[in-house]
């Protein structure tokens, strides 16, 4: 089994899946990432991340019914699994806890002789 670490981009994709629920599929996940973060993302990057997430068991997917759009091809709709949710929470907690431990000094920076 592959490692269950959640990479940065993977986490982003996971979050977006949650945001788009229940209509998250490859192309609109990409679109959402672009609109929310302003990053340039290739379709391949999204699909590769989705496939890794699925291997790790963080998302599950099923094929939607066929429509006349998309050349008659079905969409694969993604959902977050329980372990995906746990992994997200863990990351979130870790980040918050670390963030809270940072002293004010470090955030504000040291200033000597500020004029204004």
């Amino acid at each position: 089994m592959k490692g269950t670490q959640l990479g940065e981009f993977e986490e982003l994709v996971l979050l977006i899946i949650g945001v788009l629920y229940p209509e998250a599929y490859g192309l609109n996940i990409r679109q959402e990432i672009i609109t929310q973060t302003g990053r340039k993302v290739a379709i391949g990057a999204v699909h590769s991340a989705l496939s890794r997430l699925q291997d790790k068991g963080f998302v599950k997917s099923e094929l939607a019914d066929a429509t006349h759009e998309r050349g008659g091809r079905r969409k694969r709709l993604f959902q977050i699994t329980a372990s995906g949710k746990r992994a997200m929470e863990k990351n979130h907690e870790l980040r918050n806890s670390l963030f809270n431990q940072i002293s004010d000094l470090a955030l504000k920076g040291l200033n000597f002789g500020e004029t204004n």
Binding site: Y25, G26, I43, S51, E69, R70, R73, R74, K75
Partner: peptide
């Protein structure tokens, strides 16, 4: 993976 990715590509 072929079907849905092809679909995505088509839609795009």
């Amino acid at each position: 993976f072929q079907e849905d990715i092809k679909g995505d590509l088509e839609e795009y």
